[in-house]
Design a protein around this nucleic acid. Structure first.
Lengths: 245, 245
DNA sequence: TTCAAATGTCTATTGATATAGACAACTATA
DNA sequence: TATAGTTGTCTATATCAATAGACATTTGAA
């Protein structure tokens, strides 16, 4: 588990960024829980086989993210460490899934629009291409930290006013309930990973090079009729998915 | 979908690498399927807002990976494009899951060892810490391209000789069968994403900064007794997971 | 054959990245 | 109150990353 931590040169990814990513990950995995501190700069420099100044650049980046805080004379303290678990089941709901792990969850409506369904959206929602759909851009927080950004599409006819309902309740489940859909089922989830797009970086408070876990999900009502298709982007260092079969 | 492709400066990730990652992703998503070619360098330079030489660095990297091939006077042709779908269900098996999408799958045994179960492994396999387990390091290919690298643990007493059986059959399912376990069930899967570790980069033929989809999975026999715990690392640009509920 | 469009090559310059060394400033503890 | 251990700051140097411009070479179509 220990061993020489390695980085690669001349790959277009600066050493300080590789090291920052590794340390962030190690913190997330609880590697430094005993001391609550990152090892001294000289030790890290030795471990990664780089100059101490390079390690300092990495730690400066992590300090900028609010993950560590350096104290002269003492060391570099771990400020924040989180990895939420997000279960994916037939009853997957964001708020309920995260709810027991965070004191407070919020759902922000960033944008709302009615538009014609693209071929892909139409396929997922069982509509014809060009039929009207409502698109919501939402940003979900847990304990005041952004966790995921999602784009969702709903059949416009059936769910007119869902934007307003979401803005009020800050929850898809409650918005559905207000519009007469008491229950729904997660039918399909596709999971991929990718580098974050610029637009998502800012909202999720990430730095470039950061990784997103991307879940493309389709929900149906109890009769199996599609009610929602969504593409959710999660900050990979803050979330893991669990699939229980 | 079109719009200005964006890259960020002074983030420790070189522009040419960001651009290479975006283009690789776009190719994987079928963005250039109509022409079978990447847009001209000057067009890409305009789209990304960088100098043509920077785009050339990105394309050179992709050519190195064997994804594109530049032909003077014509353009830059797409050589390879793949994204396998990996379904996660109660009956998840690598070979069967990928089998219908690739002409040929292989499973290579990189390493085998018998060791004492760590606290985590023991918990997953329902053993006591320190009990003997067999660890296999395997590398799985589809159509001669590496797809995933996995570390698996098995209770040593019950599955003595599983390394040899895997080496022979190149399949966990068949190795289990040889040892008297005719059927098994995927009980739990945890999905995360992370930057690839150096050791995995080489085996999976990836470049640093590349993303892994990581699946931590536990399989049980039909009585619910754990038979395998594994951590599989997939090249994120070649694979997606599908969870059907 | 001609020409537009595309990739290939070269030179030059600037800023970011990484290394190296020296020393200052601060903290906790013996 | 020393002192070891830690982070903070400064200078200097070499290499990588990015931009800029000019021109050569190849291809495919008019």
């Amino acid at each position: 588990m220990a061993g020489l931590k390695q980085v690669q040169r001349q790959t277009g990814v600066a050493l300080w960024r590789q090291i920052a990513d590794r340390i962030r990950e190690a913190i997330g995995n609880g590697a430094y829980d005993e001391t609550g501190m990152v090892p001294p700069e000289t030790v890290l420099a030795l471990q990664f086989g780089v100059n101490r100044h390079t390690v300092r650049s990495a730690l400066a980046a992590l300090a900028q993210e609010g993950i560590v805080r350096a104290v002269q004379g003492r060391g570099t303290l771990i400020e924040r460490k989180e990895r939420l678990n997000f279960p994916i089941t037939r009853r997957t709901r964001f708020t309920a899934g995260i709810g027991d792990q965070a004191r407070e969850t919020r759902g922000l409506l960033l944008d709302e629009a009615q538009e014609e369904a693209s071929a892909e959206i139409a396929r997922w929602l069982g509509l014809k291409q060009g039929e009207q759909v409502i698109r919501l851009e939402t940003l979900r927080h847990a304990d005041r930290r952004p966790v995921s950004k999602a784009t969702s599409w709903f059949p416009a006819e059936r769910f007119a006013g869902i934007g307003e309902a979401y803005r009020k309740h800050e929850s898809i489940t409650k918005a559905f309930a207000e519009l007469g859909l008491a229950d729904y089922i997660r039918a399909t989830t596709e999971v991929t990973a990718a580098h974050a797009a610029t637009a998502d970086l800012a909202d999720l408070e990430l730095t470039p090079g950061a990784i997103l876990l991307i879940a493309k999900a389709m929900n149906t009502d109890l009769d199996g009729v599609p009610v929602q298709y969504s593409i959710s982007r999660f900050a990979a260092d803050r979330v893991q998915f669990t699939i229980e079969n």
